[in-house]
């Protein structure tokens, strides 16, 4: 009954707040909308289009540099998704099942990649790889991406563990399952939606990652964001709109997919 206060008609303030929120949403989506519109603009310029063309997408299909970078980015993103979600699963399991002195510090350490400015993280890795004698390239990009995605996969998978009924594991033990079987037959299936959600987020983040990649890529390997960046600086052309639209659609689709995984997780948690 108490919560019904704001249902009884909209005050002027609430109305203004709605309009304001609508404008902020418009601001947030404006660049995305403009890029998508421009990718179909026959003039190839940044204006309100008169007409429709697929020409820039046709050009994109002939642009070997971009297509090659797209393949590289996809490969890296798939590997990062697998490695990062696996490490995130280990970390989440370990953090949720153990109590030891300094646990808070360890947990904070996992979030460090999120707090250190990208530039600092990037140069630290460059210096370190140089020191170790590891040539910059595919492997170093992979390591950097796993590093920046780990806090996100960990967070997502942790939520699965928090909503987890520990008695299910105890029941499995009680029925004679050992630790290994309990993990794979009880624990893992229940946290799987969180792991999948984490993998999807890791994929998206890796696919879009620029700052660290910029430092650790070296000369040889070029990911899609690197190519887009250099095109923006040196070779601006409408093809960028087309590939940018592809990236946008791809990212949003993956985010929505991860949301679906979240909903499934919530349903499972409810059912458990």
């Amino acid at each position: 009954m108490a919560s019904s206060a704001h249902r009884s008609g909209l005050s002027l303030g609430d109305r203004l707040l709605r309009i304001y929120a609508g404008l902020v949403y418009l601001f947030l989506f404006a660049p995305i909308i403009v890029v998508v519109i421009s990718s179909f603009n026959p003039s190839g310029r940044w204006n309100v289009p008169h007409g429709f063309t697929m020409r820039w997408y046709a050009d994109l299909m002939k642009d070997d540099e971009i297509l090659h970078a797209l393949r590289t980015s996809l490969t890296i993103a798939v590997l990062v998704a697998i490695i990062s979600s696996l490490l995130g699963l280990l970390a989440a399991y370990g953090l949720s099942r153990t109590r030891f002195p300094g646990r808070g510090l360890v947990q904070a350490l996992f979030y460090l990649p999120m707090l250190v400015p990208g530039v600092v993280c990037g140069i630290a890795l460059v210096i370190w790889f140089n020191k170790l004698g590891i040539a910059t390239g595919f492997l170093t990009i992979l390591i950097a991406h796993v590093l920046v995605t780990l806090p996100f996969t960990l967070t997502l998978i942790m939520t699965s563990f928090y909503g987890f009924d520990r008695r299910l594991e105890e029941a499995a033990h009680d029925l004679g399952a050992n630790d290994w079987n309990t993990f794979w037959k009880v624990t893992f299936p229940l946290v799987l939606p969180g792991v999948i959600g984490g993998a999807l987020i890791a994929f998206t983040l890796s696919f879009d990652e620029f700052v660290l990649t910029f430092f650790v890529a070296g000369g040889g390997v070029k990911t899609l964001p690197l190519v887009i960046y250099s095109r923006i600086r040196y070779l601006l052309s409408p093809v960028i709109n087309a590939i940018a639209t592809v990236v946008i659609v791809f990212s949003i689709a993956l985010l929505l997919l991860s949301q679906v995984a979240q909903v499934i997780r919530a349903r499972k948690a409810e059912a458990a």
Partner: peptide, 11 residues
Amino acid sequence: WTSYIVRTYAW
């Protein structure tokens, strides 16, 4: 979640 580079490019 949409590429930082792409959004900056859009601006």
